[in-house]
Design a protein around this nucleic acid. Structure first.
Length: 756
DNA sequence: ACCGTATTCAGCGCG
DNA sequence: TGAATACGGT
């Protein structure tokens, strides 16, 4: 174990062994960035550092979990598990639970998700009779999020003439006021939004130096992964905590910064040398992931960016296969080509589905791909889309839990006060909201503590309200005595949410009930799981109550759900979601102007460069082979649009791209194609043209195909039909091709020529 | 309370 | 285009 540094190359080992002082590690894609961070922590522990004094900040919970597991393997669980490792949000939410009271937040504060924030903004708009079409809630939330990420309070915001003028010019002069109201309402609900977790941590450290000192001494070593994706609020927190000892290590790759649109600031990397003049810089430039072809092609592409730290990523890996470019006439054909190529590669190389990933720029592109894969019978899994935790029924049940933990949580209360229906209608709720505003209190408090204020409601209604409050209180009493699962289960049964779902339409509700069960299962698992040391409650007892579960669930996303073990499927996801992952065979689809690069990115060079970095990230996910596709027409927003090939395609040096000639080993004539006028001819693969129907291969009608017939396939050559099964669209044939072996072909798509 | 229709969203999305 | 939710009419 003392020998574990031998797993590292020279550059990596130097970066690991330099433990003291400010360190910046700039690592190319696939150069073992995470590996270095992991080993660095293991090495610190090995050198006798106290695990409780190490804080490691990652981009996702998943990354934190994986890193922790790896460290425990290297150095043993006893030390490894005590390292403070997590996302900015989860780590600082924990700190705010302990010390937020300085800012007036009780430890049971709720964390509002984006949905809650938008609901709240909508409500504020309707109260102020402002047009939500002018003040679009998601626009407002963006502005507010931006302000908070740059540590602008509502007061700072309103005092900044430039911002106020900009809002005026945009026809939204009340934005600052809405920010102020929104914050006040969050506070009243004892809630923080995601950005508040960072903003309030900064306020805590700014206004309470004792608290800051506590954490400065608490954390002797700070490590930050994906530093290129941190925003100003995060940067500032790190700077504050690290100020005492400056044992700060940041790891990043400016070429992989793809979240500037969300406020991430590459300047944080560039500023590092200003903040810590005596810093040490380590470069990791050897790529272990990809073939030479992929590494070099990606290098050539990224060189087009002006804003970048010069580095030379290289690899000792094999040359590998050239990049294939598939050209399709339409988006559906593109998907079919991709599915066919995957099928072909799977068959010819005998590869499992999980070796493949399809990456796209926008989620909307997943649908046609999904259909094509299904037709080919290739198993797939789509990442992204509607998250489990944002399903209606899951949010409903969680809202009950939230309310039990924090009865002032207004969004939670409004969600469930009349669900399942208990005769508290729209009018009543509106009156309650008005009353709560005039009394400057929460609705729950109003009903529970101030019955006289309800005078204008009729008796029956007041009774129903009080029954609701009584029920919630009966749950609150059990918070401490019951385990998370016991109480969650009790609440679920008491409120009758499953019955309410059963009474809704049958098709949807079955699924919804399953989701409720899945949520309860997750809570059971939580209740039974051995808690991590950092999950101990204030009193040192295991933190297994519903409150503890809810603390972590607010910061979870689908990406954190463990992948099913051994699942064999093609992964479909956006390029953003693919960051940090790797796959042997990667398909990057939709390489078209206005899609990738996105039409919204064409305004400024900085935005275009971010798109290019995105393309760089996509290319460098691949270990063995990249296939790129684009379509000439595509349905977007309901109408057909013509698409030019992406400029990024031209940025790849043609020497890395496979030309059709190389594939053409069959006896068929090369399809005649004329290059686009004024453009370099776009290379296409031979495989592509076979199914695209622009050649002289005459497919036969396979209606009467029978066992024993001799057939010809454009790609697989000549063969004999072994079996015919199914009917209609599902009719498929098993054909034994000479020199290739047996293939199953769905006759709907396979273009076969019957010879005899 | 309920149902059908209108509207909205579709650039990526950590927490 | 298509889904998911919001709205509005009865």
């Amino acid at each position: 174990m003392t020998d574990f540094l031998s797993h590292l190359n020279d550059a990596q080992r130097k970066a690991v062994e330099h433990t003291e002082g400010p360190v910046m590690i700039i690592a190319g894609a696939g150069a073992g960035k995470t590996r270095v961070l992991t080993y660095r922590i293991a090495y610190l522990l090995h050198q006798g550092a106290d695990p409780f004094r190490i804080m490691a900040l990652t981009f996702t919970n998943k990354a934190a979990r994986e890193m922790k597991e790896r460290i425990m393997q290297l150095i043993g669980p006893a030390k490894g598990r005590n390292v403070w490792m997590g996302t900015f949000h989860s780590i600082f939410a924990r700190i705010l639970r302990v010390d937020g009271h300085h800012l007036g937040y009780p430890e049971n504060f709720t964390i509002y998700d984006t949905d809650d924030s938008k609901q709240l903004l909508k409500k504020i708009l309707s109260e102020l009779q402002l047009d939500p079409k002018v003040y679009h809630p998601s626009y407002l939330l963006n502005r507010i999020s931006n302000a908070k990420s740059n540590l602008y309070s509502p007061e700072n915001y309103l005092a900044d003439q430039e911002i106020v003028n900009a809002d005026h010019a945009a026809g939204k002069p009340l934005t600052g006021e809405l920010y102020r109201t929104y914050n006040a309402r969050l506070k009243r609900a004892n809630a923080m939004d995601f950005d508040d977790l960072l903003f309030n941590t900064n306020m805590l450290f700014r206004d309470f130096p004792d608290v800051l000192h506590k954490y400065q001494h608490r954390f002797g070593y700070i490590l930050v992964d994906e530093y290129q994706d941190t925003n100003f609020a995060q940067y500032h927190i790190i700077k504050q905590i690290a100020a005492a000892h400056e044992n700060l290590t940041v790891v990043g790759d400016d070429a992989q910064s793809i979240y500037a649109f969300r406020g991430a600031n590459i300047q944080n990397i560039l500023n590092f040398k200003k903040d810590y003049p005596d810093y040490h810089l380590f470069r990791l430039e050897q790529n272990y992931r990809s073939t030479k072809t992929i590494v070099n092609a990606a290098n050539v592409v990224i060189e087009n960016n002006k804003d970048q730290i010069k580095k030379k990523v290289w690899t000792e890996n094999e040359e590998g296969e050239l990049i294939t470019v598939l050209k399709a006439t339409s988006d559906t054909e593109e998907s079919t080509l991709v599915a066919n190529s995957i099928f072909g590669l799977k068959m010819s190389k005998q590869l499992p589905s999980k070796d493949f990933a399809i990456l796209y720029r926008t989620n909307a592109q997943s649908r046609t791909l999904e259909e094509a894969l299904r037709r080919q019978g290739i198993p797939y899994k789509i990442y992204g889309g509607v998250s489990f935790y944002s399903r209606r029924e899951v949010k409903d049940l969680l809202a009950y839990f939230r309310l039990v933990i924090n009865p002032n949580d207004e969004e939670a209360l409004l969600r469930v006060i009349n669900y399942p229906a208990r005769g508290i209608g729209k009018t009543t709720i509106e009156k309650l909201q008005v009353l709560a505003n005039t009394h400057k209190t929460s609705i729950f408090n109003l009903i529970a503590e101030n019955p006289t204020a309800l005078a204008e409601l009729n008796r029956g209604t007041v009774n129903k309200l009080q029954e609701f409050v009584t029920m919630i209180r009966s749950f609150i009493v059990q918070l401490e005595s019951k385990s998370a699962f016991e109480l969650a289960n009790h609440i679920t049964k008491s409120v009758g949410i499953v019955n309410a779902l059963k009474e809704e339409d049958a098709i949807e509700s079955v699924n919804r009930i399953e989701n409720i069960e899945e949520l309860l299962n997750a809570i059971m698992e939580f209740s039974e799981r051995e808690p991590e040391p950092d999950e101990l409650g204030e009193d040192g007892r295991p933190a297994r109550s519903l409150g503890h579960f809810m603390q972590q669930v607010a910061l979870l996303t689908d990406a954190d759900k463990k992948d099913e073990e051994g699942g064999d499927y093609v992964s479909l996801m956006t390029i953003h979601a693919a960051k940090g992952l790797e796959f042997p065979y990667v398909f990057i689809v939709g390489l078209e102007e206005n899609l990738f690069p996105s039409i919204q990115s064409l305004g400024t060079r900085a935005e275009l460069e971010e798109e290019r970095r995105l393309f760089y990230v996509a290319l460098t996910r691949a270990m063995k082979k990249v296939t790129i596709s684009h379509a000439e027409t595509r349905y977007r927003w309901g109408s057909l649009s013509l698409s030019e090939p992406s400029r990024f395609l031209e940025e790849i040096d043609p020497v890395f791209i496979e030309t059709p000639r190389k594939l053409a080993k069959s006896s068929f004539a090369e399809p005649a194609k004329s290059p686009l006028p004024g453009r370099r001819p776009m290379p296409t693969s031979g495989a592509e043209s076979q199914t695209s129907g622009r050649d002289d291969f005459q497919a036969s009608d396979t209606e009467n195909l029978e066992t024993g017939m001799q057939v010809e396939h454009q790609k697989f050559g000549f063969g004999q039909v072994v079996k015919v099964e199914g009917s209609g669209a599902n009719k498929k044939a098993t054909v034994h091709f000479n020199g290739i072996g047996q293939k199953q072909l769905l006759l709907k798509f396979a273009r076969l020529r019957i010879i005899q």
